[in-house]
Amino acid sequence: MLKSPFIAAKLVIASLAIIAGCSGLPAHQNNSVARLYILNCGEGVAGDISRWSPGVNVGQSMAFADNCYLIKHDQDWMLWDTGVKDSIAALPDGEAPADPRAIHWRRPKTLANQLEALGVKPADIKYVAISHSHPDHIGNVEMFPQSMLLVQKAEYDWPGANNAPRFNPAHPVTKLEGDKDVFGDGSVTILSTPGHTPGHQSLLVKLPKTGAIVLSGDAAHFKSNWNNRRVPSINFDKDQTLASMQRIADVLAKEKAQLWINHDKAQRDTLKLAPEYYK
């Protein structure tokens, strides 16, 4: 007796699922990023922004933002950058820099309090990835002693002041040598973008509704520097910086992605901050 086309189709689907299971491949995979939060990880004023754009804007000050990004993937939590240290929040006038041209940082909200407000404990975060090892990006790494640190080997091995290590050697770490598909499904990809520092990296996040976003770290510090491909005099390598800017531009075009520049406060003021989120 012939089976109906509907029953036959169900049998074929079931058979394919069994074959996939026997081969060790998932029969159905729909992992994705569920939410992306922007956390306020510092605010400051730079005394002279020509420090970041040589020969341009000499003597002009500018407000800077410092963002962290909390990502809820179907599998786990991930934090991108940790901002300036939370202890700055207790200083009435923030933390003044030794160089008056640099950024005078303040911490209106602590990272710890923002995570608590979202019901996220430090132990819930599986991965902490940092764009690079400057203090305004790694200030709170040790708030997450159990989280796997994702950092480029070139950055991890780069000596700090007096040849001191830039990270706690006891902290669990995965030293990357290039790009990294964090969750194995293409939804969150670390991009190697050296130049600002030896192992600087950026992050491509693909959201189901918002679309693709590149979190550029300090590949550029504000939009006019990005538009004009200006390289700060403090950068580790000018040619690498320019090559990384071009690489990010290529990714933006390919993925039809937005560019979120970490320190660009004018842009940050147009975006939703936690507890709101992007999905």
Rank of each mutant, 00 (worst) to 15 (best):
K3E: 07
P5E: 08
P5L: 09
A8W: 00
K10L: 08
V12L: 06
A14R: 07
I18M: 15
A20F: 01
P26I: 01
H28I: 02
H28P: 00
V33G: 13
V33R: 10
A34C: 11
L36D: 10
L36G: 13
L36S: 13
Y37Q: 10
Y37W: 07
I38L: 15
L39V: 00
C41I: 00
G47T: 02
R51A: 15
G55Y: 00
N57E: 04
N57Q: 06
V58D: 14
G59P: 03
Q60C: 07
Q60D: 05
M62Q: 13
C68M: 04
Y69C: 14
Q75H: 11
T82Y: 03
T82S: 15
K85H: 11
S87L: 06
L91G: 08
D93G: 11
A96T: 04
D99F: 05
D99T: 09
A102Q: 11
A102S: 15
I103S: 12
R106W: 00
P108Q: 04
E116T: 04
G119N: 05
V120A: 12
P122N: 06
K126V: 06
K126M: 10
Y127C: 14
Y127N: 12
Y127L: 15
A129S: 13
I130A: 11
I130M: 14
S131Q: 10
H132A: 11
S133G: 14
S133V: 03
S133D: 09
H134G: 06
D136V: 11
H137D: 07
I138S: 06
V141R: 15
F144C: 11
Q146L: 11
V151W: 05
Q152F: 07
Q152M: 14
Q152W: 05
K153T: 03
A154P: 04
Y156M: 07
D157S: 10
W158M: 14
P159Q: 12
P159I: 05
G160Y: 03
A161H: 09
N162H: 09
A164R: 15
P165N: 07
R166P: 04
N168P: 00
N168Q: 05
P172D: 13
P172A: 15
E177T: 12
D179T: 01
K180L: 02
V182A: 03
F183M: 05
G184F: 00
T189R: 09
P194W: 04
H196N: 14
P198R: 08
H200G: 10
L207G: 14
V214C: 13
V214A: 13
S216N: 12
S216P: 09
H221W: 03
N225K: 05
N228G: 07
R229D: 05
R230S: 05
V231N: 11
P232Y: 06
N235S: 15
N235I: 01
F236P: 03
Q240F: 03
T241P: 02
L242M: 03
S244Q: 08
M245D: 01
M245P: 02
A249D: 13
Q258T: 05
D264Q: 06
K265L: 09
K265F: 02
T270W: 02
L271Q: 05
P275Q: 05
Y277D: 03
Y277N: 09
